Computed example of a mutant assay.
Amino acid sequence: MADTCEREISGQTVRIDRTLCIGSGNCTNIAPEIYVIREDNIVDFQDETPDIEQGRLEEAAALCPVDALIVEDEDGERIVP
């Protein structure tokens, strides 16, 4: 599996840096329809990721204790972290 992966969700680009992830699960608590903890105890995207409220998407990323989740707006400007 790649060290990073990204998806376009709700008009924002969400990137996961799997090398930083410690599997805290904060993101899965806020946005379980977007994130899942895989067998290796590292976060990944669900197979299908529906659009959700941008605030929840940003909150899920902001709660990551190691900044493994990055959210950018449609212009490529970083929102979180």
Rank of each mutant, 00 (worst) to 15 (best):
I42G: 03
V80F: 08
A62W: 03
E53N: 15
I79E: 10
V71I: 14
D67S: 14
S24G: 14
G11V: 03
G11T: 04
Q46R: 15
D17C: 07
M1H: 03
V36Y: 05
E8V: 08
A61E: 08
I52A: 06
N41W: 07
R18L: 06
N26H: 14
R78V: 15
Y35I: 01
Q54G: 05
E8M: 11
T13K: 15
C21R: 11
V43H: 05
G11F: 03
C64K: 01
E33L: 02
N41A: 09
S24K: 12
C64E: 01
D73I: 08
L69T: 05
E74C: 09
N29G: 09
I22Y: 05
F45Y: 07
T19V: 09
I42F: 05
E58L: 01
S24Q: 07
D47K: 13
Q46E: 12
D75T: 13
V43D: 01
A61G: 10
I79Q: 09
P50L: 04
I70V: 14
D73W: 10
C27N: 08
D17Y: 13
D47H: 09
I52H: 06
V43W: 02
Y35H: 13
S10N: 05
L69R: 08
N41G: 02
R7E: 03
I52G: 01
D73M: 12
T19A: 12
G76M: 09
Y35F: 15
I79D: 11
A68E: 04
I9Q: 03
E74H: 14
I9M: 01
I16S: 02
E39Q: 12
I30A: 00
T28N: 06
E39A: 14
E33Y: 02
L20N: 06
L57F: 04
T49Y: 10
A31T: 06
I30Q: 04
E6L: 02
Q54N: 12
G55Q: 12
R15C: 07
D47E: 15
S24E: 11
R18W: 03
P32T: 07
D75V: 01
